[in-house]
Amino acid sequence: MKRSCDYTLGQTTFLVTLRTLIGWHFLYEGLAKLANPDWSSAAYLLDSKGVMSGFFHSLTYKPSLLHTVDFLNKWGLVLIGLGLILGLFTRISVFSGIVLLALYYLSHPPFPGLVFSVPAEGSYMIVNKTLIELSALLVLYVFPTRIGLDALLAPLFKKKSQR
């Protein structure tokens, strides 16, 4: 409990900065997909390789399932993005972000021998930016800050639960 109080100003500032930047990234990824009426995850999923590829391919088999996956992905990105920027439902946002990034990482793992349709913009071996972003969220998970709307909402929840 004391721990967050013990953060120096610099620690708090950069933890919040990190959270905001990752939120920004999520939010724009989501909005860019929402803005494109033709966007679909189908091609990305079909391009999946590695041990989990069977699962990712199977998501494209039924149009209805694919629609659900697309919907969850787009709105998931937007809501997680907003959550991280605003510090709203931070814990669940950070956790969902980790799950989503883990799925992205596992669908296109940068392992030796796997080649994907879209070439990476840099050079990666096992570790890529998705994994690093995921790790950054893990850091935020274990070093939470009290900067954000959660702090405003908390009393309301607390009061309700006391009654």
Partner: peptide, 18 residues
């Protein structure tokens, strides 16, 4: 421990009031 930390931001504000 992580769990506790997570409740921190909200918890602390609460304490003040109580």
């Amino acid at each position: 421990m992580e769990e506790k930390d997570q409740k921190n931001p909200a918890g602390e504000g609460q304490e003040n009031k109580e």
